[in-house]
Write a protein that binds this DNA or RNA. Structure first.
Lengths: 147, 147
DNA sequence: AGTGTTACTATCATTTCGGTAGTTATGTTA
DNA sequence: TAACATAACTACCGAAATGATAGTAACACT
């Protein structure tokens, strides 16, 4: 799993996985979407070791999904907030959640509601143009021309 | 990252990540969706070591995303095919791909077309009931009742 | 001065990874 | 029939990553 190789990969899935291919990063992003911003909030909520958390936050920041923001000058304290790229990662988390709910849904699960209507959100991936669900039609992969 | 702990986690995203939280597993699933079924096909296409591939395939099989199928009796040879749970994982890969295309799209990328119409597929995650894009409305998380 | 808070860094045993070589069971070729 | 090829692995080992705990830095509060 070498980041450099993967970033040259013409597959957009591989590009995404180049640095987001581990569970901690995705769980950190999940928590960031649910409102957490500070080191100790992530650490306590995830039960992750501080060294690993530091490294993951640094990667997510370097890759532009999180941004450091000073929230106190004295003492100097920073928090991590989602960037546009980080916010746009939400669909990935939702889609994973939908799969987990369907295939690993034993027992009690967290529910995700529309904050205003209170209706449960049921995410479905569709084609933007046709509105047809992804997976219902055969697909064809086209490799890019040799440079 | 202990599987047992995470499987008790009430978050469906964490449940999904419990065993799918690494890049190789997701890339194997991607290749399975693109038609690969055999050990050596995965190994050559991914450039993954055989020991790791064996472990990942075993996990994906044990977790019900892939299924072993005998394709030759003499010599005995098995291949790996997607189950329903594996096929339903496609939206996760597509969503990752959409993010990768938008934020890591430098240079040439693979394109994914509808096999019949030839139109490029543009995946969007929407709420099944309202049709509104995920991310456009505030959400509320509801923890399950304490058993 | 002593304690608490927040965001880390340092250390180290254990685990996992990645790469190469070898194995098993068989078909194919000379 | 001996040698080679193929497919799907297993064994091994050095390197890297992980996880857990302890310690540090910069302050505020009492």
């Amino acid at each position: 799993m070498n980041d450099k190789n993967i970033c040259d990969d013409p597959c957009p899935i591989a590009r995404c996985l180049a640095f987001l291919g581990d569970a901690w990063s995705l769980l950190i992003l999940r928590d960031a979407h649910f409102g957490l911003t500070r080191f100790d909030q992530f650490r306590k909520n995830l039960g992750i070791g501080p060294a690993i958390l530091t490294r993951r936050l640094a990667t997510l920041t370097a890759e532009g999904l999180l941004e450091k923001r000073l929230y106190s000058e004295r003492p100097p304290r920073e928090e991590y907030v989602l960037t546009a790229a980080g916010r746009d990662f939400l669909p990935v988390l939702f889609t994973m959640g939908a799969w987990g709910r369907q295939y690993r849904g034993e027992g009690q699960l967290v529910r995700i509601l529309d904050a205003e209507t209170g209706a449960e959100i049921r995410p479905v991936l569709v084609d933007e143009v046709t509105g047809i669900k992804i997976g219902n039609r055969p697909i064809r992969i086209v490799e890019p021309d040799g440079d």
